[in-house]
């Protein structure tokens, strides 16, 4: 059946039905299945290191396993019930959403602004782009440490400035809510360059005669932006939003470097909570169920965003 299918599509692609092509077709059909062996190594790795652990994780979440001992028992949905009753889970989910949605909004707004600026004819364009893009290649962990030096309580660079105006330094990283937004800002600062580059490429692909035609009709620069730039950027917007939302929801390294989730659960995300539940509290069953919640959350939000944005693209 499959060979027949590809056979048909083959015929449609070959325009000249000469002798050589007929021979060729036969050869192709014969070899078409074993060529699939080429993706066997990749498939094997996926099965072993993604699919198997994924299903194992679902199984573990129904147990009270501690992560190392041989005996554990089935406790059904107990871990998930525990999660619903967990007083910290609300804060943690809220923080995770701020990391995801907050970074997405910031990266897209600032990234688009930077792209619009750099799209002008400008001597410093190359230099500015190099500088804004640089953090993308730096490890998020090191980036977190660098910003820790700036925000830290003792001798932090920001506090040096604050001390000019008041007599006591401020411990910004230990303030709940504030530290969550600081981490969101650091993540934005780091990956802004990607959003900017994608928007810049999108802007440069818009034909200039669209703008010329609009100018002839007397359109203001705002209405040009609203009716030409934004709709033409729709594919870039989709990519940036989906990319940033996944990146922000799974944020881990920066949180570890800056606050380690603290104080208490104040800046904890699902990823750091799961990590600590597993390694610091040997609560593997519960950690696995947090991992599953994270997976469900990320897939639902990113797929919903993707489908919604794609529909909008087509509707235009």
């Amino acid at each position: 059946m499959q060979t027949e299918l590809s056979h048909k599509s083959e015929i449609s692609t070959i325009r000249d039905h000469n002798v050589i092509n007929v021979k060729l077709r036969k050869k192709k059909v014969k070899s078409v299945f074993w060529i699939n062996l080429l993706y066997l190594p990749a498939l094997l790795l996926f099965c072993v290191f993604i699919f198997y652990p994924f299903f194992k994780g679902i199984v573990i979440s129904f147990t009270n396993w501690d992560g190392y001992s041989q005996d554990y028992s089935w406790i059904g949905l107990e871990n998930y019930k525990r999660m619903l009753a967990d007083t910290n889970i609300g804060t943690v989910i809220k923080n995770t959403l701020i990391y995801g949605v907050g970074s997405t909004v910031l990266q897209n707004l600032i990234g688009l602004m930077y792209a619009l600026l750099l799209n002008q004819s400008l001597k410093t364009r190359g230099l500015t782009r190099t500088i804004v893009y640089l953090p993308v290649i730096i490890s998020p962990l090191i980036m977190g440490y660098i910003w820790y030096f700036i925000f830290q309580f003792n001798g932090g660079a920001l506090n040096d400035i604050i001390l000019l105006f008041r007599d006591k330094p401020v411990n910004l990283l230990s303030m709940p809510d504030v530290n969550v937004w600081i981490i969101t800002f650091v993540n934005t600062f780091q990956f802004l360059g990607i959003a900017m580059t994608i928007y810049l490429a999108g802007l440069q692909s818009i034909p200039t005669d669209y703008y010329e035609a609009a100018s002839l009709d007397g359109a203001s620069s705002f209405s040009k932006f609203r009716h030409i730039t934004l709709p033409m950027l729709a594919p870039s917007i989709t990519i940036n939003i989906v990319l940033n939302i996944i990146g922000g929801l799974k944020l881990f390294d920066v949180i570890v470097a800056m606050t380690n989730g603290g104080p208490g659960y104040a800046s904890q995300s699902l990823s750091t909570m799961m990590y600590q539940t597993y390694f610091a509290r040997q609560d593997a069953g519960y950690a696995a169920s947090i991992g599953n919640l994270m997976f469900v959350l990320i897939s639902i939000i990113s797929l919903a965003a993707l489908v919604y944005l794609r529909r909008r693209e087509i509707a235009r």
Binding site: G57, S271, M274, G291
Partner: peptide, 8 residues
């Protein structure tokens, strides 16, 4: 994300 399947 690899983190979601970290435990197993």
């Amino acid at each position: 994300p690899p983190l979601t399947i970290l435990v197993p």
